[in-house]
Design a protein around this nucleic acid. Structure first.
Lengths: 205, 205
DNA sequence: TAAATTCCTTATCTTTTGTTAACGTTTTGA
DNA sequence: TCAAAACGTTAACAAAAGATAAGGAATTTA
């Protein structure tokens, strides 16, 4: 992965996106921005691989990625992230243990990056520590809520209901992601999703 | 729910448990402990209900709870927490929106409690703010990793494999939780879990 | 302690999903 | 640009899960 210094426009987009969690003043942002680099992934290029310890947390400027695992030699896609979202093999990044899955660009993808070491530097920097802890807390809490909903969908919904929810709530995924990945995401096989779609066509309830 | 001041032994257990995330010095702990109260739940008593905004985060001193949703008039159990763990309707607690599920004591359960308002006070207290943000970040990150694994299990494993994992890794759940709740937890019906158990008896591979 | 309720298993039947393979279409990449 | 690979659908069959009901054991509770 080739890194370079980020351009100012990109940093502005990043700053804006982070305001969902925390607002940096000028001085803080100056310090923060010094730790940001940029990178580009060609379609199908990997951001993370099984067995590797995640070194970066990424912010997707443009493009999208999928998270997948390999089981019995088969790729199984578990999640997607699009522009404006953070991306990382979180568990690996946070625990410094080898990751168990892959992250791969679905499209040509431009990222902003913060390395683990840089993040630690910021967490230890007297002028940034407090706000970075807060940023980390709010970010983790935000994703915790997302995960909670996703788990709940597996417990309380059938695959067909999960698909209908996707259709009504997450049109973007439908439009930007191949169907066999969506099938995995719903916890079923591509063949089964194709059948569900056919069923819904003829009984759109 | 009846609250009272916690006894010192309970606070000590709490302090010890929180060291997984953060270590308070004496002064900090004094301030922290002032915001802790205690409560007791009889078996089947509720800690949270659908439609209510969660006011407390709890720490289970003794006992256990289950998280469940009601769908089509049926209770569906999604999770359990045991002594030494935190418990809350997190999404509701964090977002101040009405919760979508229930939390109920599986056994007589003793809790330590921190209210949302007290937590905010601590997050705003000059001598505690930094450490509380850090505590919140590390806690949320910890549960994020747990959730990530759980989601991944729904994507990559069959119900039978999930059950086998439970048998090998989480004996405590098996021993303390009725089987039909475990079935829900695995994303299947009690009847189906009974069949899986029978299959495994005769082909323990 | 007796009655009521809950819990687990089992059986039957239906529905859904998984597996494998085939086929035409689209996309990819050399 | 052209061959190869990937994609979505469909079919046929097997395997698993859901729904419902019944029966006995265990637990609860009045």
């Amino acid at each position: 992965m080739i890194k370079s210094p980020p351009d100012p426009a990109a940093l502005l987009v990043f700053r804006k996106a982070l305001e969902k969690f925390v607002t940096f003043n000028e001085e803080e942002w100056m310090l923060f921005a010094q730790h940001v680099s940029t990178s580009f992934l060609k379609k199908k290029e990997h951001f993370a691989r099984e067995g590797e310890i995640a070194s970066y947390i990424g912010f997707i400027l443009t493009g999208s990625v999928r998270y997948y695992h390999i089981k019995d030699g088969e790729e199984i896609t578990g999640y997607f992230s699009f522009d404006g979202e953070l991306v990382s093999s979180y568990k690996s990044f946070l625990t410094r243990q080898p990751g168990t899955g892959y992250i791969q660009a679905l499209e040509p993808t431009t990222l902003l990056l913060i390395s683990f070491d840089d993040l630690q530097d910021m967490l230890n920097h007297p002028l940034l520590a407090y706000k970075m802890e807060r940023f980390g807390r709010l970010t983790a809490e935000y994703y915790l809520c997302c995960y909670e909903e996703r788990i709940s969908s597996f417990i309380t919904q059938t695959p067909e209901e999960r698909y209908q929810d996707l259709v009504s709530k997450e049109r973007e995924i439908l439009q930007r992601v191949p169907q066999h990945y969506i099938a995995n995401f719903l916890g079923i096989t591509p063949v089964s999703l194709s059948r569900i779609r056919k069923r819904l066509l003829f009984q759109p309830s």
